[in-house]
Every structure is written in C-alpha cells, then in structure tokens.
C-alpha cells in the first residue's frame, strides 16, 4: 500500500467535513421497528405451530425457522426484500429472513452464467463469511463449554 502523504490526509479531513451523514436516528428507529416486526411474526408462527401440537423446544422452532427462511427467499424472488432492506437496514439483514435473502439474491443474479458456475458457485458469495465464522465460532464456544463444564 502506498504511503499516505500529508496532502492526502488534509484532503480526507476536508472530505469528512463535507460529506452528508447517513440519517442515523431514522435508520435506528426503522431497524428497530422492522427487525422487531419480523420477530413478532416469528413468534406468531411459533405459537401457531405449537397450537397445532408440535413439540415446543425442538419441532416448533425448527418449523418456524424453515417458514421464515421460505418467506425471506420468497420475498427476495418477488423483488420486495431489497426494498424492505433499503429502509430497514440491519432490521431486515440480521433476522434469519435476511440470511435467506443473502443466499437467494446472488443465486438469482448469477443465473445468467449457468447453474454450476453461476447459481451454485456464487450462491454463498455474501453468506459465505457468515457461515465460515458462524460455524467456526460456535465450534469454539462448544469446545470452551465442554472444557469448563468438567
């Protein structure tokens, strides 16, 4: 990497002061509302599955996750999820529906390069890092839990 000169530093200072700031408060409120709403919908689905007689600690939560993933993927396919995401930001990225969106969006986008090198190869281009570090850290935590328990 090239060395940053004083001129570059001064210019970046000027840029920092001239740039419009993102509307943080509005973004926070929207993320809270939409993220909260998705969780409420999740809870309603969970209650519905329990009322149907699914077991409440394993079966019903798994069915709920599957339903939410389907909804996220479905809304991505309809071209709606990116519009929600534009307003909600992290509110629609963090829940499991956002995870579905991050896999379906590239899968749709790269269909033009074929099912092998397009869809399959590019499907995890956004979600890949989440999977790698999510699985690695859960294995690590599991190991620590195992050691501490004994």
């Amino acid at each position: 990497m090239a060395k940053i000169t004083q001129d570059q530093k001064d210019y970046q200072e000027l840029v920092k002061n001239s740039k419009p700031k993102p509307p943080y408060l509005k973004n926070l409120v929207m993320a809270f509302l939409v993220g909260g709403l998705i969780c409420v919908i999740g809870q309603l689905i969970l209650n519905f599955y329990i009322s149907l007689g699914l077991e409440s600690t394993k079966e019903a939560p798994s069915a709920t996750s599957a339903t939410l993933v389907f909804l996220g993927a479905f809304l991505t396919g309809l071209g709606v999820y990116d519009k929600i995401g534009k307003r909600a930001g992290a509110g629609s990225i963090v829940p499991i529906t956002g995870f579905a969106n991050s896999i379906v969006a590239p899968a749709m986008e790269f269909k033009s390069e074929g099912y092998v090198f397009g869809v399959a190869a590019k499907m995890f281009v956004v979600a890949g890092p989440v999977l790698v570090y999510g699985i690695a850290s859960s294995a690590l935590i599991g190991l620590i839990y195992y050691v501490v328990k004994f």
């Binding site: 740039k19 419009p20 700031k21 993102p22 509307p23 973004n27 991505t76 071209g79 999820y81 990116d82 519009k83 929600i84 995401g85 534009k86 909600a88 930001g89 629609s92 990225i93 956002g98 969106n101 991050s102 379906v104 969006a105 590239p106 749709m108 986008e109 790269f110 281009v125 956004v126």
Partner: peptide, 16 residues
Amino acid sequence: RQYRFPLELGNQRPPT
C-alpha cells in the same frame, strides 16, 4: 454486480 452486490440484496446505501 461487478463492483458491488447482487441487485436483490437488501442492503442500505450511504447518501454519498
């Protein structure tokens, strides 16, 4: 798709 993200990805863009 070349420079940024897939179109349907629900991310937020900064005002710049």
